[in-house]
Structure formats: C-alpha cells, structure tokens
Amino acid sequence: MTEHPTGLSIRDLRVTFGGGRRLLGAGAPPVTAVAGVDLDVAPDETVAVVGESGSGKTTVARCVVGLVRPDSGTLSYDGTPLGPVRGRPAEIQRAIQMVFQDPRSSLNPRMTAGAIIREAWQAHPAAAPAGDQHAAVRDLLEEVGLDGGVARRRPAELSGGQCQRISIARALALRPRLLVCDEAVSALDVSVQAQILRLLVDLTREHGLSLLFISHDLGVVRQIADRIAVMRSGEIVETAATEDLYRSPQHPYTRMLLDAALDLEVAET
C-alpha cells in the first residue's frame, strides 16, 4: 500500500456540451450532460454507474480518463487533482486506464495485437518491462486468456471477445490501479460476455484494481459491482451497496428502471 490511497473522488462535476457562440445568433442552447455529480471509487472497489442513454454516465467516465474537460467540479485520484489527460502526471495517466464499448473500433486495425500493446509502453516508458517486450506481451496475452500467437494477428482477424481481451491487455500493460469500463461487454455475444466479466473480476482481485463500470445492463451490474450509482439526466439519483439497491430501491426512478427490466423468468419456482 502506498501513502494513504483514497482512490477516485469526484466532486460536483458539471459538463455542458455545445452552446458555442455562432457568427450570427446564439446557436443551439447548450446541453447539460452532467449536472453536479459526486462519486467515489475506493481502492479494490467496483462501482457501477447505470442509467439510460443520455443520462450522462459515459460523460462521467470520459472526464475520469481526461477525454472530456468538465466545466466545473473536481476530480482527484489519491489526492492528486485530475485535469485534462495531457496535463496529468505520467504516473496518474498510467494509473487510470479505459476499456471501451466496441473493441473493434477502439483498436487500430493496421496494427497487430502485439504492437497495440507495445505502443502503450512507448507512451509510458516508465511502465515498459525491463527485459524482452515480446515475452512481456506473451505474458499479458496469457493473463487475459489468449494464446501468445495472437500477438501477430490484427483486430480484423480476431473475434469481438478476443479484441476486448486485447483492449484489456493493453490497459493492464501500464499496471493501472483504476480501470474505467464503458459498456465493456455490451457489444459482445452473450456466450462471450460471461468470459469477459469473469476475466475482469479475476483481474481486479489479482491486481487489487478498482473498477468504474459504466453499463445499462442491470443484470450484469448486479453480478460484479460492490456499489451502484443510478444516473438520470446528468444527476446521480441514488447510490447504494449493490444488494441494497435491488432489495430496497429508494428513488422512484430506480424503482421504475428495475420494474422495466426483464428477466428470463425460467428459474425454478
């Protein structure tokens, strides 16, 4: 354990899009995507943010990794303030990594899987392995459940599940402490979803990673989250320990979401 790790802390985060001044007239009114969000993710903790499309959950994730600049509010990791990604200390850039929804479009189609992973080390030489990089790539691939030979393949030659494993390996290559997953299993076939969920859970345990897991799937989130924040129209309407949220949802919107969610209803009665 380092100093006094407190993990991720988000205070009164606000983000608006658009509303830029046009030459003539006012242009479109700005859209408030995030309207004052407070959220903490402790070390070792998996926190899920759920909500419908347009709720602002992805924008929160993008602020955390520094891809969106908030209008106001503070973000910090272990007490270090988080600005835009370029202004962050390399150490913090490395510590927070993201896994995107669509693994195919988030991997460079012209690079092999091995090159994609090694590129992370070019950006962050401090995290690069001391010895043979190719051997280190093979170890990483193995860790995410892929054969070492995959290093020579390009994304188009791999399945969706394999591509998502590459994305995870690329993130792991920098030895992060917080993994931000934006709908990381939504685009995968159901029979592959369980593989990736299990991988994420195993990795968080082995590496003491914390997870900020953005999802619209109330079933998936129940399986992996310690705590859940429910977002609507840019605000968190309720945060609760996972089982408490499902057993006694407090906010009417949470109740509505849960009521609308379907189950298979094939379990033995």
Partner: peptide, 22 residues
C-alpha cells in the same frame, strides 16, 4: 445461453463461461 443471461431480480453469480467464440 439461458445460463449466461444475468438475472436482474435475483442475485446470481457470473455464469460458467463457454470457451471460445460463436
């Protein structure tokens, strides 16, 4: 397939994954 659908209204563990891809 049936086992891999995470339940919303009951607590379930992550299903035993099938190997490979479709």
């Amino acid at each position: 397939l049936v086992e891999s659908v995470p339940a919303v209204h009951t607590k379930t563990a992550i299903a035993a994954p099938l190997p490979g891809s479709p």
